[in-house]
Design a binder for these strands. Structure first.
Length: 337
DNA sequence: AATGGAGCCAACCGCGGTTGC
DNA sequence: CGCAACCGCGGTTGGCTCCAT
């Protein structure tokens, strides 16, 4: 036989917590702790609530040092970088933000930050309508402006030097942002920051470029095409953007991810941007999660997905025809088509 | 002032992994 | 070993508030 039933579901209250209930729960836990048993706690505390509900209320609202209110730019950066690396693993992300709960971060992402990020693509008149379809548009040879506050916020660039039209490649490589960190950064391994740029390359492709300090740009040697991987070249490289509504991209606009390649770099996916230096992965599980993206139909199937795979079985996973410029192994380019 | 839509967020739901019996 | 409950998580929902019309 198993354990006793957790609670009398017919006799538990649901819905918003009253101040009295909050007080009872808080007082009880402060005096006696949770005892490691949430199911038994409500009865002991004199609450007609399910243990799950008590746990949620405590963790998300009542426990000490909970931080409410605005998220800082630094918190934004952490959330963005971690989301880019591991997706919607909110509890892991929350662990990096003292005082923030996974629920808070999840809500913040869904309601604000996601839209804020997609504000990267605004039209010159600052309207919120979405950019014209890629790649054919009157702006084909002109990069979309990046929202100034967000850019300065995320990239630590000074507003005075802000160029609303980011040419690609551009001298943003010389700045020192740390938007996207590699996985091992927040997991306790070697710190390595990466930069993120939005713009157009010399072929007017819409790109997000990820690179780290010291990455050379396409213009450095005039061989900009060498590191560009077309969708048909990569068996698991086709991304779709999340449908972000106003100001965002429509579904089925594909992201293309160009992984910097070298003898030490392997094919990654799903927003995990691998460094070219030898990687000592601290958490193999997460790596597995990332690498599994291409074998499951999508990475984050829910509405919170930022990118997810469009697994294309017609492709043969053979990257041998990709022309790699070994001098640019630290560039990571994401294409929007 | 009334109303409807959008945004926000606390709370619930359901699932997968873990644990106790 | 298998079943059932616990636990924690991510996704979703519903109600409240704000704001534009």
């Amino acid at each position: 036989m198993g354990r006793a039933p957790c609670c009398d579901k017919a006799n538990v209250k649901k819905g918003p917590w009253s101040p009295e209930e909050d007080s009872k729960l808080k007082d009880y836990i402060e005096k006696f702790g949770t005892g490691g048993n949430w199911i038994a706690l409500p009865q002991k505390a004199g609450l007609k609530r399910c243990g799950k509900s008590c746990r949620l209320r405590w963790l998300n609202y009542l426990r000490p040092n909970i931080k409410h209110g605005e998220f800082s730019d630094e918190e934004d950066r952490i959330i963005c970088s971690m989301f880019a690396s591991i997706g919607s693993r909110w509890s892991i992300i929350a662990a990096q933000l003292p005082g923030r709960t996974d629920n808070d971060i999840k809500n913040y992402w869904n309601t604000k930050l996601k839209k804020k990020l997609m504000g990267l693509v605004n039209l010159p008149n600052n309207s919120q309508r979405k950019p014209p379809p890629f790649p054919s548009s009157s702006h084909q040879n002109q990069p979309y402006p990046i929202s100034q506050p967000l850019l300065s916020s995320l990239y630590n660039t000074s507003v005075s030097s802000f160029d609303p039209y980011v040419s690609f490649p551009s001298n943003y490589y010389s700045s020192n942002p740390s938007l996207f960190h590699t996985q091992e950064n927040f997991l306790g391994g070697n710190y390595s920051s990466m930069q993120c740029y939005y713009g157009k390359d010399q072929n007017s492709n819409n790109v997000l470029m990820f690179g780290n300090e010291g990455s050379c740009t396409s213009s450095d040697n005039g061989s900009s095409n060498n590191n560009h991987i077309k969708q048909e070249d990569m068996g698991c490289s086709a991304f779709q953007s999340y449908n972000l509504g106003n100001g965002g991209f429509e579904e089925n606009e594909n992201f293309m991810l160009n992984y910097g390649s070298s003898s030490t770099s392997t094919t990654g996916c799903c927003g995990y941007f691998e460094e070219t230096s030898p990687l000592d992965y601290v958490v193999e599980d997460v790596k597995q999660l990332i690498s599994n993206c291409g074998t499951s139909n999508n990475y984050n199937n829910g509405s919170n997905s930022f990118f997810f795979f469009n697994n294309n079985n017609n492709n043969n996973n053979n990257n041998s025809n990709i022309n790699i410029d070994e001098n640019k192994t630290q560039e990571k380019v994401m294409y929007f088509y």
